[in-house]
């Protein structure tokens, strides 16, 4: 990864963080809001494979944790696992369809939120599974479908194109 790639990744992380903090956090339905930060590792895994999905997820998670009241490092762990898992899941895909990113995003968001809630519960965060998980799933999963395409495009601009056999082959976004 070159310094130009790192700069692009930093820009993407910052832009999505600003959008999340200033716009998406205000969109509250039943107390839950869309989660664009969780879409970052999903998009990275989809575009650049499990390796970079995990790395990008870790960076996005640490950044998200700076602004969350929950245990520090929890988002880093979950995002890292989600990026890795998404990369592994879409590894065999050679061609992409327009409908594939939204479906992958919806599935990975649901899994990511469930893992976050379970790990949060293990770490003593109250009510993550019993109270907060259901509204989070109901709101964040459909929102992931809507936000998937722009976020995947943004991440594919930031991360270098991957070699064949990794990702879904849309990593060659505009430079």
């Amino acid at each position: 990864m070159t310094s130009a790639d790192l700069a692009r990744c930093t820009i993407v992380l910052f832009v999505v963080l600003v959008v999340q903090q200033t716009l998406l956090d205000s969109v509250r339905i039943a107390g839950a809001h869309p989660d664009a930060m969780l879409l970052l590792p999903i998009a990275a895994g989809y575009v650049a494979g499990p390796d970079r999905g995990a790395g990008f997820g870790f960076a996005a998670g640490v950044l998200a944790d700076l602004f969350l009241p929950t245990t520090f490092g929890l988002s880093a762990l979950v995002f890292c696992l989600v990026g890795y898992g998404t990369g592994l899941t879409v590894r065999g895909l050679v061609r992409s369809s327009w409908w594939l990113p939204p479906i992958v995003a919806a599935g990975a968001t649901s899994v990511g939120l469930a893992v976050y809630a379970i790990l949060g519960s293990v770490l003593g965060e109250p009510g993550t599974v019993t109270t907060s998980l259901a509204p989070a799933l109901v709101v964040a999963t459909p929102a992931a479908v809507v936000l998937a395409t722009p976020v995947v495009r943004l991440v594919s601009w930031a991360l270098p194109a991957v070699s064949s056999g990794h990702g879904a082959g849309i990593g060659s976004g505009p430079r």
Partner: peptide, 8 residues
């Protein structure tokens, strides 16, 4: 700003 986490 309102709740930054879906879990708090």
């Amino acid at each position: 700003s309102l709740n930054s986490s879906n879990f708090a």
